[in-house]
């Protein structure tokens, strides 16, 4: 029986999380008769003071899938804290090289999937430092659309590609090693200009919902003399 940890690291509190959804998609593709699955949500782990227990689970994992949103071009601070502390936990408890297979699934709000590359490289570096076996990353652009639009006809091909990528992780964990260890990129098949236009229009709608005018979004509270 293999131990697999599916770690999702959305910093959001009580809001739907793309990362959790994607971690679930990987988990659904793992055969429960062969694999013991442990889901860890980093925010919940910290809030419920389960960090030590979860670090133990991580250190016993045969495979670790780390799913997170891109924050300012790399890992969110909350995941950085978790992994930095996990590294210290390993040192303090004299853990030897992990040997776990590790995968990174990163999604970003910008449409370009390739901007996730440095975040995947950070997970690769983390693996070098704990002696784990980094396998490959899945880099997703336009991640903000997944939960809202996953059923839409224009998403069909992208969803198929995503399912294929996440199945590749599940198969690689199960022992059918993926020969090609290049990272997989998944971008929305949606006109970029329209994506940006819709995104921009959406902020005005949110402002109005919060009782603000669109011009309020441009406030400069820290400008001297204002």
């Amino acid at each position: 029986m293999k131990n697999v940890v599916l770690l999702s690291a959305s910093p959001k509190v009580n809001e739907p999380s793309v990362s959790k959804y994607l971690a679930g998609m990987v988990g659904d593709r793992l055969d429960a008769s062969e694999v013991e699955k442990t889901y860890i949500d980093v925010r919940q782990s910290m809030m419920k003071h389960q960090i030590q227990r979860d670090f133990e689970a991580l250190s016993e994992a045969d495979a670790l899938v780390i799913v997170f949103p891109l924050y300012v071009f790399c890992m969110p601070g909350i995941l950085t804290r978790f992994l930095e502390d996990y590294y210290k936990f390993r040192s303090e408890n004299n853990k030897t090289a992990s040997n776990a297979k590790v995968y990174a699934v990163v999604n970003c709000g910008f449409p370009e999937s390739e901007i996730n590359l440095e975040a995947v490289r950070v997970i690769r570096s983390f693996c070098r430092h704990i002696g784990a076996n980094f396998r490959f990353g899945v880099m997703i652009g336009g991640g903000g659309m997944f939960l809202a639009a996953k059923e839409a006809p224009f998403m069909k091909k992208v969803m198929a590609k995503l399912e294929e990528a996440l199945s590749a992780i599940a198969k690689d964990i199960s022992g059918e090693d993926r020969g090609d260890l290049n990272d997989i990129q998944i971008a929305m098949k949606f006109p970029r200009r329209l994506y940006l236009f819709m995104g921009n229009a959406g902020w005005g709608v949110l402002a109005r919902k919060n009782g603000l005018h669109k011009k309020d979004l441009y406030k400069k509270p820290y400008l001297l003399n204002e």
């Binding site: 890992m75 950085t80 930095e84 983390f126």
Partner: peptide
């Protein structure tokens, strides 16, 4: 840290 900022600075 891991080729990135430390957790405090990243935050």
């Amino acid at each position: 840290v891991f080729g990135q900022f430390s957790a405090n600075i990243k935050n």
